[in-house]
Design a protein around this nucleic acid. Structure first.
Lengths: 218, 218
DNA sequence: GTTCAATATTGAACGTGTTCAAATCTCAGG
DNA sequence: CCTGAGATTTGAACACGTTCAATATTGAAC
């Protein structure tokens, strides 16, 4: 336990305020004060306001991985495994609807260090894709299709997050239902990716996404 | 021609500056000055900085519609028609890569009047979906699937825009190629939407997107 | 020309994200 | 204990998005 736990205090304070007031209505000054530190100190640890949300998202990744892996132990059905990964993600975000939009603010900033799509955050994307790929490591999914399927599922998770921040239903039940249906549509189609006709598309998709720095170079 | 054309002057000045400097690096003060008006005046016409990009996007919609319809005259092939709609969109955006991220900044703000997903901008979304649906009004596409297919294609356009702002290739050639491939994959699959099994999914998708205010209520 | 309601313009001011030089703290080494 | 390098904290200041009360303009009606 480090003597000075400032970074964690700031993040905790931020999350509490974000949950209560939302991203935009929470000021960095409030966060610093609530954390018992200065405004400059908050910026020392988090370069931008959005970085707070991103840091939280990163912290959650470990929980997501653990939760998903626990669920993977219970079933070999690809649909159920993928759905479990989606639901764990949603469970983790349950209290966070008011401020997860903050994560989306930087989507269109190719060079920003706090964009999910930035080069800096390649490891984060890699992990997000990897945990979904693990769901597909079962007999029902062709080996050759797993990488591309994981990528598609990752994009779908992003779409789900976008939908989630707009969802006004109790317990985000609409998001859950939609995710369930989307997964139910997509997962059985994975076999199509193994077809020879899809081969060229798959290679091109991967290379293009890598070039746009969305995917790690392979 | 109105005596005072301030709104248009501000928008023109903004676009010129955005193209040169990008969205974030262009200040409202610069825009107002360049338009020969005051900062407050700029805000009189555009409630937020992002509203400038949105207004431009709206203006482009008419051009998009015209361009797409012209292309639709030349072919009855659904793939070609849909692809044409996508390419017209990209042509219109060609000079705008540096600032189209500004349009994405508000994606995660459900209540913001300048979000593409906001209730205020339902007509805009409706038009975007409608022009794509027009592409599908040909014999090769089942009538029952056209609405849902148009919706999916609209989501794909959004994904394309997201990819576009990250694309570093000359003339956004990568975006073009990816769009071509994606359309080539999706359009032939439209027949699947007519299957009885897809019926329930389609109804549920529509109702959910409507409830999240992403789709117009029907 | 005058009047008046509606519209448009203005610029000072505010709030907030962010910056940064100065000061302080920490800890390992002597 | 002292020293010094590196890390951390600080708060004043800056820039910019945004606001808003006061003022000016416009155009229709008389």
């Amino acid at each position: 336990m480090p003597r000075r736990d400032t970074k964690q205090k700031i993040l905790s304070a931020a999350l509490k305020l974000f949950r209560k007031q939302g991203f935009d209505r929470t000021t960095m000054r409030q966060i610093a004060k609530s954390a018992g530190t200065s405004l400059g100190s908050a910026y020392y640890y988090f370069p931008r306001k959005e970085a707070l949300v991103l840091a939280y998202f990163e912290d959650q990744m470990a929980l997501h991985e653990a939760g998903a892996r626990a669920a993977y132990q219970t079933t070999q059905d690809p649909y159920e495994r993928v759905l479990a990964a989606f639901m764990v993600r949603l469970d983790l975000m349950a209290q966070d609807q008011k401020f997860f939009g903050g994560l989306l603010r930087t989507l269109g900033e190719p060079d920003s260090s706090v964009s999910v799509f930035s080069e800096e955050n390649t490891p984060l994307r890699r992990r997000g894709i990897a945990i979904l790929r693990e769901a597909l490591e079962v007999p029902g999914v062709p080996e050759a299709a797993r990488d591309d399927a994981a990528l598609m599922l990752w994009a779908l998770v992003l779409g789900m997050v976008l939908y989630f921040v707009h969802d006004t239903s109790e317990g985000a039940e609409r998001t859950r239902a939609l995710a369930g249906r989307a997964v139910g549509l997509l997962v059985p189609s994975l076999a199509l990716l193994e077809l020879p006709q899809a081969q060229m598309l798959r290679c091109e998709l991967r290379s293009m996404l890598a070039d746009a720095k969305i995917l790690p170079d392979t």
